[in-house]
Amino acid sequence: MNLFRLVADLMHLVSIFILLLKMQKTRSVAGRCSRISFKTQALYATVFLTRYTDLFANFQSLYNTTMKVFFIASSLYIVFLMKFKFKATNDPRLDTFKAQYVVGGAAALALIVNYAFTVQEVLWTFSIYLEAVAILPQLFMLTKTGEAEVITTHYLFALGTYRGLYLVNWIYRYWTEYYVDWIVWIAGAVQTGLYCDFFYIYFTKVLKGAKFELP
C-alpha cells in the first residue's frame, strides 16, 4: 500500500458518501437541475460484484476486505434507494445511454484480452473494463441536462480523482517494485481520460463559484 492508493481509495469513499448525502438531503435522485444516472450506479454495483468474487478466498488485509465489503454494500444500497425508495424521482427518459453496449463491449473484450481464461479472472477483467466506462451514462446525462448541482460536480470530482490517483499509484509501484499490470493501466487511463473535459469545467467554473454549465 502507498499513500497515492490510500488517498485514492479515500476519494472513492468520499464520492460514495457525497452521493448518499445528496440523496438523503434532497430525498430524491433528481435535484433542481441535476440528476443521478441509475444506469451508472447499477454498473458500479456490477463492477464490484464481478471484481470481488475473491472476497473470501483471497485475504489481502483487513483494510482490503473491509473496503470490498463496503463497496459492494454501498453500491447495492444506492441502487436500492434509486430503484425503490426514490423511484418517483427517477426519470428513465433522461437516462438514455445504451448501457448494454458498454456491458457487451467489456464482456467481449474480457473474453479476448485477459491474464487467464478462468471464470474468476475473466470476471475480474470484465469489471476492470466496465469500470472504465461505467461513468458514461452519468456524463451523458449531464450533457443532456446541460448543467449539474454543485454537489453532483463534487461527486464526479471525487470519483474522477480516485482513478486518477490510481494512475499515480501505478507509476509509483512500477518505479519501486516493477509492478506491471497492462489491463488496469490502460483501463485506468481511459477511465480518467473520460473525466478530462469535466475536470476542465470543474476547475474553471465550479471552483470559481460559477454554476456548472456545459458550453
Partner: peptide, 10 residues
Amino acid sequence: EENTRKHDEL
C-alpha cells in the same frame, strides 16, 4: 502469467 497473481488492489 504472473499477472494472475492474487489481485492485491481494490
